[in-house]
């Protein structure tokens, strides 16, 4: 199977990437080249293999470490918003959101 320009547009929209037409064509070729080497992988028989999400699972069972419920984070709005593109009275500003 290979990716069409329509696929590229769908993915670019999902990823919110505005692509120029050259870029669009180039990516289409490059992704198809890449998925060429992926075909080998798809052929591998992996029935009854459990996916490995966290490499350290190989060392033994991993369990999520839990933190006590304590609110200790001070208000650092100023420092945290220092890099904000658009602010108004402590709020981040974005183009109007229509629901």
């Amino acid at each position: 199977m290979s990716l069409s320009l329509a696929d590229i547009d769908r993915l670019a929209h999902l990823a919110r990437l505005g692509l120029g037409s050259d870029e669009r064509n180039r990516l289409c070729t490059q992704l198809n080249d890449f998925f060429g080497i992926v075909e080998k992988m798809r052929a591998v028989d992996t029935s009854d293999i459990i996916p490995l999400a966290h490499p350290v699972e190989i060392m033994g069972d991993v369990a999520l470490r839990l933190r006590d419920d304590i609110a200790s984070e001070p208000n650092q709005r100023e420092a945290n918003q220092r890099n904000a593109p658009a602010l108004e009275s402590g709020l981040f500003l974005v183009p109007r959101v229509i629901e």
């Binding site: 993915l11 999902l14 992926v38 992988m41 798809r42 591998v44 992996t46 293999i49 459990i50 996916p51 490995l52 999400a53 490499p55 190989i58």
Partner: peptide
């Protein structure tokens, strides 16, 4: 993305275990 997850991502995670 929908319809490709198993064939690509999940398959890769499985082979990842085989490699480990």
């Amino acid at each position: 993305s929908h319809g490709y997850y198993d064939a690509y991502y999940l398959q890769a995670q499985k082979i990842r275990r085989m490699i480990a």
